[in-house]
Design a protein around this nucleic acid. Structure first.
Lengths: 363, 363
DNA sequence: GTGAAAGCGCTAACAG
DNA sequence: CTGTTAGCGCTTTCAC
């Protein structure tokens, strides 16, 4: 009837033992006689005691046993991105090993929402996809005093970070095409800012505050091409729309759509560098549709080497990055007994040559 | 030096206002003058107050704003399973919309570990993959008094559940092949129990306590075949190893490996029913390797209709189930203002005919 | 608008 | 092995 909720105290009173003893029955079986423990557990069942309240015990202990993972984009988008999924797999593996839960929080498009979620998350530490310089979430994390690592973030700020050699990977991709004799290039780039619209890259892109990964990869492409005497002006670079300018972002579709800029022109490139495997797939689809043979007429290189890269037709030449390992590394850092605030880990990338690239066609 | 941690009280004292007022400054801006509020926020910044402690406020409020998702298998495995991923996408979409976090907890192979994680999770409710009758996790959930829904679970017990018409889907798959004139069938099944070893299905499978989904689909296959006068004895049924009997479960590989039982025999089937798209892909790979043409010499039907089913070569004929919708439905149930303890939702399945099935070859 | 009192349910620390 | 003390940090009353 007017029953109070059953708590540890209810139980202690009913058995006339102290609360502490009941607590021990659950958390430290070795601290009391098996007989007493059994009596307590039996009484618990009888009275309907649900066991120690996790929130209360977390408050007291000061540890939640949960690791937070914050995305840049919406959560549901993350689950459509093969790269994000492989990353999560790595982080999940380590969480599992350590017996901690994994809390996913959205990096909602509405920025303020994302900040609140981070403020309220009951976690011991955070892994944060943070590609954008001056991301306000970092401030919130600092305020909260939570240990955190940034993923794929600019290296500038004094926060621990895990990333990859984006620039080096891009350089290798471009070099590979150069070695095959290509001279006319097209690039399909991520966006440089949340509010960019789909289309050609602005000439002043270098000066734009913007996404770090995009910039690095662009620089990598350019370094290799310039070193081989290819004028950057001669390279057609197109970028996808930023999150603020799009609703449904399907990267494969973006690649397919953008490919028209590269493929439907008089002197079209013989080689295309795409910043992800999905973009690359879209390019291949567009090419096939136009009767352009890959790799015979057109070479395409992706980025990431997600699982599907090897399974599409033709199998994609791409830049491999250790996605699961990146996640696992972040988790290990966060779960280590002593958190290294100055860790800056850069994982290597390497080119994987498959079937989507071939020597430049002789005109 | 010996500073205490900065709490709401520290701040209240420093400004000589009540704790309540400080709390309001964060949670109910309209309850105090903007000027005072600003003074409080400024002081907070100065003293390094991290904002209201989420665990403490959750304890007091009694709501965590978090939804839990518990898997049957290891967490890292879930991230390799396209069906699980699509499900998560659906659940994530609804969580995001409601502004609640999503806590992933493993259903570790070591059962006891899984129980503890569920006991300690700081969530308001749980979605639980629970395919196994008598799963002890249900007991724990009941003890805790947490609202929960079971996913893909037996309908027997009086717990809310979201599932699909597994049997009907299987029936349609088999019927499709019958309509194409096939008479010699092979089936690639999930395991019926955690400890089954790879190989032929035991004749007494019906009596085994076991995984509900597996049983349902088998029954569906059998119903359709029997109705068409195909003797169940004549159907070669092979199952994959259970979680206890395997380390690395790669379903595509399982399918590939098991296919040998079906393809390397004198009178091999002309049609194979596989319980997942991955298993089906494995079969196709094995067939190609043997020079058996799909669908000309061999028809293959998958199950689930995950995204890749349409993208493989040949595109898979398969049973579609609304995976994301299943996740979203579970989330909506859990997030609804009033939780319906008796909800039993069964989502429909339907056959999607693509390129992996064709009329039975004429001998 | 603002504040005082009264817990939310649990466990660390230490004494017996 | 068992019990006592003293909070963890916050927010829900309800009075002013």
């Amino acid at each position: 009837m007017g029953q109070r909720r059953v708590t540890l105290e209810t139980l202690a009173r009913a058995l006339s033992v102290s609360k502490m003893t009941v607590s021990n029955a659950y958390n430290r079986p070795d601290q009391l006689s098996p007989a007493l423990r059994q009596r307590i557990l039996d009484a618990a069942r009888e009275l309907g005691y649900p066991g120690p309240n996790p929130v209360a015990s977390t408050l007291r202990r000061g540890k939640s046993g949960t690791l937070g993972l914050a995305f840049d984009d919406s959560l549901s988008y993350a689950f459509t991105d093969p790269a994000a999924i492989e990353f999560m797999q790595g982080i999940a593996r380590e969480c599992e090993r350590a017996g901690v839960g994994l809390l996913l929080v959205p990096g909602s498009p509405r920025r303020s929402g994302a900040l609140d979620v981070i403020r309220h998350a009951m976690v011991d530490s955070f892994a944060v996809f943070c590609d954008y310089e001056g991301d306000e979430r970092i401030g919130v994390l600092r305020e909260r005093g939570l240990p955190f690592v940034l993923i794929d973030s600019p290296r500038l700020n004094d926060a621990p970070a895990v990333g990859i050699d984006d620039r080096g990977g891009a350089r290798q991709a471009a070099q590979h095409l150069l070695d095959l004799g290509h001279r006319r290039f097209g690039i399909l780039s991520f966006c440089l800012n949340p509010d960019t619209v789909e289309g050609p890259l602005a000439p002043d892109w270098q000066d734009q505050a913007g996404y770090f990964v995009t910039k690095e990869r662009l620089c990598g492409y350019r370094e290799a091409l310039s070193a081989a005497g290819i004028a950057w002006d001669s390279v057609a670079v197109y970028q996808v729309a930023g999150v603020d300018q799009t609703v449904d972002n399907d990267p494969e579709d973006d690649g397919y759509r953008l490919a028209r800029f590269l493929l439907d022109q008089a002197s079209r490139p013989t080689a295309i560098l795409a910043m992800s495997d999905e973009l690359a797939r879209g390019v291949v689809r567009a090419a096939v549709e136009r009767g352009i043979r890959v790799p015979r007429d057109l070479s395409v290189v992706g980025y990431d080497d997600t699982a599907q890269a090897a399974h599409v037709q033709p199998a994609l030449t791409t830049v491999h990055q250790p996605l699961a390992e990146k996640g696992a590394t972040a988790a290990r850092l966060l779960l280590a007994p002593s958190f290294d605030v100055h860790a800056h880990i850069e994982l290597p990338t390497h080119l994987v040559v498959r079937a989507s690239t071939a020597p430049a066609p002789t005109p």
